[in-house]
Design a binder for these strands. Structure first.
Lengths: 140, 140
DNA sequence: ATCCTAGCTTAGACTATGTCTAAATCAAGA
DNA sequence: TCTTGATTTAGACATAGTCTAAGCTAGGAT
């Protein structure tokens, strides 16, 4: 049983076969998939699964705070099942590959009070960008 | 004459009336507009301006490094003419309002070598999220 | 065990955002 | 003025995501 399914059950969620397949697809990888990629992979296990269910389910899991929605390229959203551990992201500007990384300090402390413009700042995310090893080789 | 136009001229860019209007629209505000908002505002000064020209021009200015493309909500890209000053962004989770902010540390220095996964890390951006003063009032 | 019903799933239409194409237009040097 | 390549245009197309209305199902009630 997937750990994400356990967490979802706590929200009084009805655990349908569709939701289970989607949650397990999310958790089964350390890559952050787009909705279409999740649809494709989940459909290989449950061919009748619809696009709308995948989008609905992902949005609901985001609203419950159990997964994170990430947008790096403005094209499509990606979903990160690792919502309960503080981490940041490293994105390849060549191929879009993304990895989780852990920085050693909290960026909120780097924002002085007079730069907060009265906002109640709740969280901060760092996006590191560069070229992955493969794209460095391709560019050389 | 807009400073952005001056910078664009240095790239041997032909400064057409369309490009000038788009550049001045970008620079004339400290808000970061979407492409559609830029189109709407620029069209009020040059009604025959086409959507394709706005999108083409924005993409070219991004490629030249003279403006920044930002994606914080996964819906539409926003454009930031302030590409030549290091800064980060503060986004309201209520209304989407965005402001430029300046942090007191460089995030790249806080990413240990063994967290870089072989990437050539070129830049880092911090997105601070929270509620703006108006949205705090509305929630209270 | 079966029934009920709120909640879930579905296909496909629809919306929003952005890209591409081919033809017309323009700008600058010969 | 002519030529030529760059630029602009309208609108078709592509992609990502949302909505709708109808049917289905999980799980508590009986």
């Amino acid at each position: 049983m997937s750990d994400l399914v356990t967490r979802l059950r706590r929200h009084n969620w009805r655990i349908t076969p569709q939701r289970r397949v989607i949650a397990e697809t999310l958790e089964g990888s350390h890559v952050h998939f787009t909705a279409e990629e999740i649809l494709e992979r989940a459909c290989s296990r449950m061919p009748e699964l619809s696009r709308a269910t995948v989008y609905n389910t992902l949005n609901e899991m985001v609203a419950l705070g159990e997964i994170l929605e990430l947008t790096f390229d403005g094209r499509s959203k990606r979903y990160d099942p690792n919502a309960d551990h503080e981490h940041h992201h490293l994105v390849c500007e060549g191929c879009g590959l993304m990895k989780d990384v852990h920085a050693v300090a909290d960026p909120i402390e780097w924002l002085p009070g007079d730069e907060r413009h009265g906002f109640a700042v709740a969280r901060a995310a760092i996006t590191y960008r560069g070229l992955c090893p493969d794209c460095q080789d391709a560019a050389a």
